[in-house]
């Protein structure tokens, strides 16, 4: 931000052109901002207000909805669907952690060890996006199927008992989330690791830091922006996801996205759906703010 400002201020004074510099008008920046602001207003602010208003209305589709400031919509929605809410954050949190554990070594390897394979590996990370999200999630049903080799192997080593299964369990949901959002973790991590100056590691070694200390004090610290960006990009959509639960979960593993979807489309209970959506948005925002403060990466936002 600061760089951009000074960059702008520079040329006005020492312009080498023949033409005299045109006087700057105070409103020029605002004019330039206008398309962006209009976009934000139309596609973010207006829907947001509509959603907030819907969450406080009562009525039905046949009789129409009226704004009655029905704050009880929130307390009812949260008391009825508290379990699904908690589950969403639990599953999304677990998936984010798994993504970090899998994604960090992967991003590290691509950034520092891949050599000429780097671009190929990056493409491989992105390649799954060429097929539909839905198809990829459905594919997990085949991989984890009760007679498939994964379950057979787990049974053979007694990690699952004979009647045990993976499909239609919370574990399958978390696995699906992890798989689907892994690239969102790897790419920002790679971007921040790749920028790192490897001579810093040499310097650390010169100062008698062992490999672990050097990683902890240099690499990890410098990759923190990537970690924060990656965890946010993973956690936020995962918390609202309902596709993985739909295909890989059971009736007892529904997440808040499932409820919003069924309230909105099946039960036609728009106010509750809106209240849940709004509550989800606010709680994610709070979690993100607390998290970013704790990590100390405030300038990211």
């Amino acid at each position: 931000m600061t760089a951009a400002l000074t960059g702008h201020a520079g040329p006005a004074t020492d312009a080498t052109d023949e033409e005299p510099p045109r006087p700057r008008r105070w409103y020029t920046p605002y004019l330039l901002l206008l398309p962006g602001l209009a976009w934000l207003a139309v596609f973010f602010l207006v829907p947001m207000v509509a959603l907030a208003s819907m969450s406080l209305q009562t009525g039905s589709l046949g009789q129409g909805y009226r704004l009655t400031w029905e704050w009880a919509n929130y307390s009812e929605a949260l008391s009825t669907f508290g379990a699904q809410f908690g589950r969403s954050f639990l599953y999304a949190g677990a998936a984010t952690l798994l993504c970090l554990l899998i994604g960090y070594p992967l991003a590290y390897a691509i950034a520092f060890k891949a050599g000429r394979w780097r671009n190929l590996l990056l493409i491989l990370v992105i390649a799954p996006f060429f097929t539909s999200f839905l198809i990829r999630t459905l594919a997990w049903k085949i991989i984890l199927s009760d007679d498939g080799w994964v379950v057979d192997t787990l049974r053979a080593v007694a990690l699952l008992d004979d009647g045990g299964r993976l499909l239609a369990t919370p574990a399958a949901v978390i696995l699906g989330l992890t798989y689907n959002f892994l690239p969102f973790m790897v790419l920002p991590l790679y971007a921040s690791l790749e920028k790192m100056d490897e001579r810093l590691l040499e310097a650390a070694a010169d100062l008698y830091a062992n490999a672990f200390t050097a990683f902890r004090k240099v690499t990890w610290r410098l990759s923190l922006p990537g970690v924060v960006a990656g965890t946010l990009l993973t956690f936020i959509p995962a918390a609202g996801d309902y596709v993985n639960v739909q295909f890989l979960g059971t009736p007892n593993s529904a997440m808040v996205g499932t409820v919003i979807q069924s309230r909105f489309l099946t039960v036609l209970d728009y106010p509750t759906a809106a209240a849940l959506s709004f509550a989800l948005m606010v709680s994610v925002l709070v979690i993100v703010l607390v998290y970013v403060r704790r990590v100390g990466a405030r300038d990211l936002l």
């Binding site: 039905s60 589709l61 979960g249 009736p251 007892n252 593993s253 069924s262 036609l268």
Partner: peptide, 18 residues
């Protein structure tokens, strides 16, 4: 009716976990 529909769906969606 619309009201019944919502009651029926409410009960059913609660059982199927949504």
């Amino acid at each position: 009716t619309e009201e019944e529909e919502r009651e029926y769906q409410d009960l059913f969606q609660a059982v199927i976990g949504a």
